[in-house]
Simulated scan of single mutants.
Amino acid sequence: MQHSSTQDTFVGLFVAAGIAALFFLALQVSNLSSFTDQDSYTLVARFENSGALKVKSPVSAAGVKIGQVSDISLDPKTYQSVVKMSIYSQYNHIPSDTTASVFTAGLLGEQYVSLEPGGSEDFLKDNEVLEITQSAIILEKAIGQFLFKSAEEKK
């Protein structure tokens, strides 16, 4: 079987396109594709447990991505998880009584912060702290409590 340079060129282009597609997919999955620096402001939330929340995890309100987690640290005095979120500046009308919760996307998906707006007419400003938070639900802990409770009921 004879190979022509045209066939070799098409095979090379096909392989290069496949590698580019895999690279693009890896960027999408790892959430590294957001290289653009949008104007944003910072909100802070304190959680008893932030679960498997990571830096660059999405922050959403009503299912719309409005920002991402920029930093997670441990407060050495209260032992709470301090989560800093970069909120895109176009979403600067978030009520001051907004609730922040850590949820999981799907059964085994990544964790994200969901903001539930309140009814206040005052809006959150840069570096303000969300007062009302709900920590991540740890699946192992919930299963353990269920098993312990059902074992007590059988006695």
Score class of each variant (00 low, 15 high):
residue 16 A to Q: 07
residue 38 Q to R: 13
residue 115 L to T: 02
residue 71 D to R: 15
residue 153 E to A: 13
residue 125 K to S: 13
residue 13 L to F: 02
residue 131 E to Y: 14
residue 155 K to I: 03
residue 151 A to Q: 01
residue 126 D to I: 15
residue 150 S to H: 11
residue 88 Y to H: 08
residue 86 S to D: 11
residue 121 E to W: 14
residue 150 S to W: 09
residue 118 G to I: 13
residue 95 P to C: 10
residue 69 V to P: 01
residue 3 H to K: 06
residue 71 D to H: 15
residue 55 V to C: 09
residue 145 Q to S: 05
residue 126 D to E: 14
residue 31 N to M: 10
residue 123 F to N: 07
residue 24 F to T: 12
residue 106 G to F: 14
residue 86 S to P: 01
residue 99 T to S: 02
residue 79 Y to A: 10
residue 41 Y to D: 02
residue 74 L to W: 03
residue 19 I to L: 11
residue 33 S to V: 08
residue 93 H to Q: 15
residue 114 S to G: 05
residue 74 L to N: 09
residue 7 Q to F: 03
residue 100 A to S: 08
residue 14 F to K: 14
residue 11 V to L: 09
residue 152 E to H: 15
residue 111 Q to G: 04
residue 114 S to Q: 04
residue 68 Q to H: 04
residue 76 P to G: 12
residue 151 A to Y: 03
residue 12 G to S: 08
residue 101 S to K: 03
residue 6 T to S: 06
residue 13 L to T: 04
residue 61 A to S: 12
residue 101 S to Y: 00
residue 102 V to N: 00
residue 122 D to N: 15
residue 18 G to W: 04
residue 9 T to W: 08
residue 32 L to E: 11
residue 97 D to V: 03
residue 117 P to Q: 10
residue 122 D to C: 05
residue 75 D to I: 06
residue 122 D to K: 13
residue 15 V to H: 05
residue 60 S to Y: 01
residue 8 D to N: 05
residue 130 L to V: 09
residue 5 S to H: 07
residue 67 G to L: 05
residue 24 F to S: 14
residue 8 D to E: 10
residue 87 I to Y: 05
residue 72 I to F: 06
residue 69 V to A: 04
residue 74 L to I: 12
residue 35 F to L: 12
residue 16 A to F: 06
residue 2 Q to I: 09
residue 85 M to Y: 07
residue 65 K to D: 13
residue 39 D to I: 10
residue 25 L to R: 06
residue 153 E to M: 10
residue 101 S to C: 00
residue 99 T to K: 07
residue 91 Y to D: 07
residue 87 I to W: 04
residue 74 L to E: 11
residue 148 F to R: 13
residue 70 S to G: 15
residue 115 L to G: 01
residue 36 T to W: 06
residue 132 I to S: 14
residue 9 T to L: 12
residue 11 V to C: 03
residue 10 F to T: 10
residue 70 S to Y: 09
residue 28 Q to E: 13
residue 123 F to V: 08
residue 60 S to I: 03
residue 106 G to M: 15
residue 76 P to R: 14
residue 127 N to A: 14
residue 23 F to I: 10
residue 110 E to T: 08
residue 57 S to C: 12
residue 58 P to N: 15
residue 88 Y to A: 08
residue 49 N to C: 01
residue 6 T to R: 12
residue 153 E to D: 11
residue 6 T to Q: 13
residue 148 F to D: 13
residue 76 P to M: 13
residue 129 V to L: 14
residue 41 Y to V: 03
residue 17 A to T: 11
residue 139 L to N: 06
residue 117 P to V: 11
residue 53 L to H: 02
residue 87 I to M: 07
residue 40 S to K: 12
residue 30 S to H: 14
residue 151 A to E: 02
residue 70 S to N: 15
residue 5 S to C: 06
residue 95 P to E: 08
residue 57 S to Q: 06
residue 59 V to P: 00
residue 41 Y to R: 01
residue 62 A to Y: 13
residue 155 K to L: 05
residue 130 L to P: 00
residue 104 T to C: 01
residue 117 P to M: 11
residue 101 S to F: 00
residue 38 Q to F: 15
